[in-house]
């Protein structure tokens, strides 16, 4: 037996912890890349806000600085906001806290060590919050987040039964991963379009895209090409073996949905999303229409979430009762 409420808690635990790790990687890589680019080529820190989707929240919180004529968002403000900012429900710290809270609720259905690891991660993050003011301290802190999330994943892989709870957790994780990958592509492509094809820093930018998704080495091994638009897009969208490629995330999601009863609607949504991704006309997309295409993928991902939500989490006693009367 798996309570609907527990299923929902593990699903969200998967999503939040994945979001924490993903955001940490993105901030980490952006910090590294920033150092490599000469002044002028620098894309600033705003793209990070767009990836996480907290542009307007940030503007609200830091409007004073903007009004004072300080147009470019300052590094420390953006980083502070993304890591632990007040008013940012999507901050890394909030995601870690929400992941822990959900695992706490779901304690009876997840391995004890996984809950403990998430508790430790949260304690380590909040205990060392004052370190993140310096770039060096920030690197340590982000590493801690990534390592903490990996530890939880390792515990789950190594000790959790492949039961329904595990399926919901993995589905949450894979949907969040796919979503993050599309967001990174979305925002990066925007800044890349504004530049010309032969930009000497083009490769640096695409390398940054790959690195923020931990995809650089797998890309190198899988693709003969240099990391440029077309090849990168194909890899991050359509590769079936790299676990953060959208296509691979959907394959995983499908296999977990198949373990669950009554998953027809969600499976159908999953198939639709896979079809959208497979139909992508790369490399042409790299030049034109990428934004619209990624929107389409995000809508398709969201549809899977909605089907899962209405199939498993939402139905009330009344709904179930009506269903059994009808059948």
């Amino acid at each position: 037996m798996l309570l609907a409420r527990m299923a929902e808690a593990v699903y969200w635990a998967g999503r939040h912890l994945e979001r924490a790790e993903g955001t940490a990687r993105i901030v980490q890589v952006h910090t590294d890349t920033h150092v490599d680019l000469p002044v002028g080529e620098d894309v600033g820190w705003e793209p990070l806000l767009a990836i996480v989707g907290v542009h307007s929240e940030f503007a609200e919180r830091y409007s004073a600085a903007a009004e004072a004529g300080d147009t470019a968002a300052a590094e420390e403000d953006v980083v502070e906001f993304l890591l632990h900012g007040d008013g940012n429900a999507s901050s890394i710290l909030s995601a870690v806290a929400a992941g822990r809270e959900n695992l706490r609720t779901a304690r009876p259905v997840v391995p004890r060590e996984a809950w403990e690891a998430s508790n430790n991660l949260w304690l380590a993050c909040s205990d060392h919050m004052d370190e993140v003011k310096s770039r060096q301290g920030r690197v340590q802190w982000l590493r801690r987040v990534i390592a903490g999330c990996q530890r939880i994943n390792g515990i789950l892989l190594g000790t959790m039964s492949r039961d329904e709870a595990m399926s919901f957790l993995s589905i949450g994780q894979n949907l969040e991963r796919a979503d993050l990958t599309t967001r990174v592509l979305d925002v990066r492509s925007e800044s890349l379009h504004s530049q010309h094809g032969d930009d000497p820093y083009d490769v640096v930018h695409w390398m940054a895209v790959l690195r923020s998704l931990a995809a650089y080495q797998p890309f190198r091994r899988a693709m003969p090409a240099r990391p440029q638009g077309g090849a990168t897009l194909r890899f991050l969208l359509q590769d079936d073996r790299f676990p953060r490629a959208v296509s691979a995330c959907l394959t995983e999601t499908r296999s977990h949905l198949k373990q669950l009863a009554r998953s027809e609607a969600a499976l159908e949504a999953c198939a639709t999303a896979s079809m959208v991704v497979a139909s992508a006309a790369v490399p042409r997309l790299a030049l034109d229409g990428l934004e619209e295409f990624l929107d389409e993928v995000q809508v398709a991902l969201d549809a899977i979430h909605l089907r899962i939500d209405e199939t498993y989490f939402r139905p009330s006693f009344v709904d179930w009762h009506a269903q059994s009367e009808a059948s």
Binding site: L3, R5, A7, A261
Partner: peptide, 20 residues
């Protein structure tokens, strides 16, 4: 809120597979 008593006076839990 995870439990309900139905007309048969039995207690049921709201699970992912329906009422148990």
């Amino acid at each position: 809120s995870d439990l309900a008593v139905l007309d048969d006076d039995c207690v049921y839990a709201r699970t992912i597979d329906g009422l148990e």
